[in-house]
Design a protein around this nucleic acid. Structure first.
Length: 594
RNA sequence: GGGGCCGUAGUUAAGCUGGUUAUAACGCCGGCCUGUCACGCCGGAGGCCGCGAGUUCGAGUCUCGUCGGCCCCGCCA
């Protein structure tokens, strides 16, 4: 069987399109051999393209020569098939296939290309090792699961673009080769050949450019844009990722948030037919941390943390007595947990720096607990009343530094939500988190750093706090959280040069550095900068949630591994001595290989 | 920087407290087959047990190191 050119053949249908209404039509399909069922005198091939499968049948009645040749077909061979659509008799209908009521009887076919036996079978139920899938990514993307994710992503981006264009936003590209700035994540650097010893940085986000576009009067900007951060990876984090980046002039936080939630709800309506009620729920940062322990609360289930410091601070239990904060988490019906379960949860909270996990099982006549004996009668009764404890409940306690207590117990809350099946599937629960602190104390650098970024405006009247009590200043910033995942965040920016300089001062950035790193921004703000603000959405993470995939890699065509490498191209790699010389670079140590 | 899990035919896995020739399924190759649909039946090939040391009479199995993949903490405005 010879490989033949495409010639003048033209595809008439995709492999998901034909049905009984097309019977007797002459059609032409093109695709890959999915399954081959060779009966000797009769051969069935399931032909696959990106849309679906169609059974084509080679029979001697239609073309004996073609049947003869088709014995040589193998998985993943590329075919063009011409034939007649036939209705299948009732008992031969395949109800599992969209095109299962028909088949295409082959009158003529062309083998367009052969294929080696693939390293793994191209189908959804085969769970090949991820490293293998990544090495042969082009094959992995043939699987319906993967290609559907990629197609969905395209549809979602399309919906976002439509919304933004309808709302007067202008798509504007910003530089990829740009300037390294202090603050924030580690930069990816690109050496400059024409300016030896100097480096570009890849943008962590187009933050400054979009603000400058507002200064330009372009008024409403957006961009679907790659961003780069040289930090460690996670299942929801890649070193290069895509943001839907938005900025608008003459807007306060209400304007940005209302625009953003319209965009998100329209996106969900258009692509998933999911209705989201607007306006979205809002919660302050302080309340989020108090009740959920995290600044990205999953509000799909209740189970809130309770501050019990005032009740048990004076207890004889040393861990409580020494703690700055003691919080409790009551799980109704949780006393069914075994010792082993509790040990596992204890190990889990230790990840976050907890020393242990205190617990009390509320039984009919007693409190079963390693710590009950340390609690006075009053402490017990106060806990019982304030936490409304019922027989069958379990109470977990976490005590220590506030950050640790909140993170550990907040993470445990999510874990318990899963364990007790409290999290409704198929629910998308967006929530705005607002009133973030403007600054955070960086213990390592011994200075205040911007929690969002240094261009975020403080709330009215909070500028003065920068000099008196920086930790109390609140930001005009907002995060959008979906099912416990941060999917977007933004702020109203400082649009006054003097205020921006004051902010740099508060961050310990000296004037000369501010001038050299951000001089262009400070200048731009002096030439009539409009009030402005914006938001950026993490597209990959958003798509991951919408498609309910477990990893961000499943919604990115060519992702990187945890070591930020591409298994397929083998990037990163060494470069030739000549390339280094041209760039004026010299490696400190000899690499293993060039 | 740190913690954890995993690496055995092409693939997915099994391989017990170390013990003869390392199993199975799918895939692959050959043959048969006109109604299958993850076709079926018969036969066959296929292994540096990730790599390197060590312990041992003996290592897929135990120890250490190393490489790779994944999950997590730190980090990620």
């Amino acid at each position: 069987m010879q490989v033949k050119p495409l010639g003048w053949w033209i595809r008439s249908h995709y492999c998901d399109e034909l049905g009984v209404e097309d019977v007797d039509q002459q059609v032409c399909l093109m695709g890959w051999v999915q399954y081959r069922r060779d009966h000797g005198g009769l051969i069935f091939i399931d032909l696959r393209d990106r849309k679906g499968l169609t059974q084509v049948v080679f029979t001697p009645e239609f073309n004996a020569q073609a049947l003869e040749e088709a014995h040589g077909l193998r998985a993943e061979f590329v075919l063009a098939v011409k034939g007649v659509v036939r209705e299948r008799p009732g008992d031969m209908v395949n109800p599992n296939l969209k095109t299962g009521e028909i088949e295409v009887a082959v009158t003529e076919f062309r083998l367009l290309n052969r294929a080696k036996t693939p390293p793994f079978i191209i189908e959804d139920r085969v769970d090949a090792a991820e490293s293998l899938r990544l090495k042969y990514r082009y094959l992995d993307l043939r699987r319906p699961f993967m290609s559907e994710n990629i197609v969905f992503r395209s549809r979602a981006v399309q919906a976002v673009r439509e919304f933004l264009h309808e709302n007067e936003f202008i798509e504007i590209e910003t530089p990829i080769l740009t300037k390294s700035t202090p603050e924030g994540a580690r930069d990816f650097l690109v050496p400059s050949r024409l300016n030896q010893g100097q480096f570009y940085a890849l943008p962590q986000s187009p933050q400054l450019f979009k603000q400058l576009l507002m200064c330009s009067g372009l008024d409403r900007y957006y961009q679907v844009v790659k961003c780069f951060r040289d930090e460690d990876l996670r299942s929801d984090r890649q070193p290069e990722f895509t943001q839907v980046d938005i900025e608008m002039s003459f807007a306060d936080e209400e304007a940005v948030m209302s625009m953003a939630e319209k965009m998100i709800s329209e996106l969900f309506k258009k692509t998933l037919d999911v209705y989201m009620e607007t306006p979205f729920t809002r919660i302050s940062y302080a309340q989020a941390v108090a009740e959920y322990g995290l600044d990205r609360p999953d509000i799909r289930f209740d189970l809130k943390l309770r501050d019990v410091t005032h009740i048990v601070k004076g207890s004889e239990f040393r861990l409580f007595a020494e703690a700055d904060l003691i919080k409790a988490l009551v799980v109704p019906g949780g006393s069914i947990l075994s010792r082993k379960d509790i040990d596992d949860f204890t190990d889990f909270v230790k990840i976050y720096g907890a020393r242990g996990l205190a617990w009390i099982k509320i039984k009919e006549n007693e409190w079963q607990s390693p710590i009950a004996k340390f609690l006075s009668e009053l402490e017990r009764s106060t806990l019982s009343v304030e936490l409304d404890l019922q027989v069958g409940d379990i109470v977990f306690f976490q005590a220590g530094k506030p950050d640790m207590v909140n993170t550990a117990l907040g993470s445990l809350r999510v874990k318990l939500g899963e364990r007790f099946d409290l999290i409704p599937k198929d629910v998308f629960a967006p929530v705005w988190v607002t009133d973030f602190p403007l600054l955070e104390w960086d213990e390592e650098e011994k200075r205040w750093v911007a929690r969002h970024h240094p261009f975020t405006s403080p709330r009215d009247g909070h500028f003065e706090l920068l000099e008196t009590d920086p930790g109390q200043a609140l930001a005009r910033a907002y995060d959008l959280v979906l099912n416990g995942n941060e999917i977007g965040g933004g702020s109203i920016r400082i649009h006054n040069s003097l205020e921006q300089q004051k902010m740099f001062e508060a961050l310990g950035i000296i004037e000369s550095e501010a001038k050299s790193k951000f001089g262009f921004l400070l200048q731009a703000l002096e030439y009539g900068a409009p009030p402005h603000g914006g938001i950026a959405f993490g597209l990959d993470r958003l798509i991951m949630l919408m498609t309910k995939t477990a990893s961000i890699r499943d919604v990115i065509a060519f992702p990187k591994t945890q070591k930020a490498a591409c298994v397929m191209t083998e990037a990163p790699s060494g470069v030739s001595p000549r390339q280094l010389r041209e760039l004026g670079l010299k490696l400190r140590e000899k690499p293993a290989e060039g």
